[in-house]
Amino acid sequence: MSIRLDHIDLSILRALQNDGRMTNAELAEQVFLSPTPCLRRVKRLEKLGVIDHYTAEINRSLVGIEISAFVFVQLQRNSKKNAHNFEQAVAELNEVQECFVVTGEYDYLLNVATTNLKSYDEFIKEKLGDIETVSKVDTTIVLNQVKSRRQLPL
C-alpha cells in the first residue's frame, strides 16, 4: 500500500532523513512553510507510519563493534510454523541488525554485528545454532564498508 505524498511531504522527509534532530522551526524554514502547518504535516506522516521512528547512527568501530557479517540461513523445512518460530527467535537476538526473507537457496539473510570474532563464534554456536528450525548457515564477513546509506531516494 502506497500513501499519496505531495512535494511538500517529500521535502519534509528528505530534510528529516538528512537531519532528524532539526527543530520544527528549522524544518519549516527549509521546506518553505510556517511552523504550525509544518508540524501538522510531520505529525500526520508519523501517524500514517511514513515516519517510522527516529534514531541516531552510531560509529560501530568507536563503540567496539568490530565484526559485521551477512549470514545466510536455510530452514530445515520451509513451512509457516518453522518460519514463525525462526522469526520469533531472531527477533530476540541483539546481534541481528536486520533480517530479510530471501529467494534462492537460502530462506533468510541476516545482518549481524558483534564485538569480535570470538563473540561472533559464540553467536553462531550458542544462539543462532540453537534455533531448532535452522538447517544450514553460511557467513560472509565484511572486510570494509565502502558505502552506507540509510536515506531513501525520494
Results as ranks from 00 to 15, higher is better:
Glu29Gln: 13
Thr114Trp: 00
Val50Asp: 03
His53Ala: 10
Ile124Pro: 02
Tyr120Glu: 01
Asp6Tyr: 05
Asn18Val: 10
Leu154Gly: 06
Lys127Ile: 05
Arg40Ser: 14
Thr115Lys: 11
Gln30Leu: 14
Asn24His: 07
Glu87Arg: 06
Tyr120Arg: 05
Ile8His: 02
Val134Asn: 01
Ala89Phe: 09
Glu105Lys: 12
Gln97His: 11
Arg41Lys: 15
Ile51Pro: 04
Thr114Lys: 05
Ala91Leu: 07
Ile58Ser: 12
Val73Trp: 06
Val63Asp: 07
Glu95Tyr: 03
Gln97Leu: 11
Lys136Leu: 14
Leu5Pro: 01
Glu126Asp: 15
Ile8Asn: 00
Arg60Gly: 13
Gln151Leu: 06
Asp52Val: 00
Leu152Gly: 14
Asp19Tyr: 10
Ser61Pro: 12
Ser61Asn: 15
Pro35Ile: 07
Arg40His: 13
Glu57Lys: 13
Val112Ile: 13
Gln17Pro: 00
Thr36Ser: 13
Asn94Leu: 08
Glu29Asp: 11
Arg14Cys: 00
Lys147Gly: 03
Asp9Cys: 08
Val142Trp: 05
Tyr54Phe: 15
Tyr106Trp: 13
Thr140Gly: 11
Leu62Phe: 13
Arg41Tyr: 12
Ser68Met: 08
Thr36Asp: 08
Leu13Met: 12
Phe72Leu: 14
Ala113Trp: 01
His53Leu: 07
Ile58Gln: 11
Gln17Phe: 05
Thr133His: 09
Phe100Pro: 01
Arg4Ile: 10
Glu122Asn: 15
Thr55Ser: 15
Glu29Cys: 05
Ile141Asn: 01
Arg44Ile: 05
His7Phe: 13
Ile131Trp: 10
Gly104Asn: 00
Arg77Pro: 04
Ile124Trp: 02
Val71Tyr: 01
Val31Cys: 00
Leu45Ile: 10
Arg4Glu: 14
Val31Lys: 03
Asn59Met: 06
Arg40Met: 12
Arg44Val: 05
Ser119Leu: 07
Thr55Gln: 11
Thr23Asn: 06
Ala83Glu: 04
Val102Asn: 02
His84Met: 09
Pro35Tyr: 02
Val90Pro: 00
Val63Thr: 06
Phe86Ser: 04
Ala89Pro: 06
Ile124Arg: 10
Gly129Trp: 01
Gln97Thr: 12
Asn18Tyr: 09
Asn78Leu: 02
Leu27Asp: 03
Phe100Gly: 01
Asp6Val: 00
Ser68Gln: 09
Leu10Trp: 04
Asn18Trp: 05
Thr103Tyr: 07
Ala83Val: 07
Phe72Gly: 02
Asn18Gln: 15
Leu154Asp: 00
Leu75Asp: 01
Asn18Cys: 09
Asp52Pro: 10
Glu95Ala: 12
Arg14Tyr: 00
Ala69Glu: 00
Ala83Trp: 02
Glu87Thr: 09
Arg150Asp: 04
Glu66Thr: 11
Arg77Gly: 07
Phe86Thr: 00
Glu57Tyr: 14
Leu143Val: 06
Lys81Val: 13
Glu126Ile: 11
Leu48Phe: 07
Thr36Leu: 12
Cys99Val: 08
Gln76Leu: 14
Val101Cys: 03
Asp130Arg: 14
Lys136Ile: 01
His84Glu: 13
Leu33Glu: 03
Gln30Lys: 15
Ser11Phe: 06
Glu66Pro: 09
Gly20Lys: 13
Asp52Ile: 01
Val142Asp: 08
Gly49Asn: 02
Ala56Gly: 12
Leu93Cys: 08
Gly64Pro: 09
Leu62Cys: 11
Thr139Ile: 11
Val142His: 08
Leu45Phe: 10
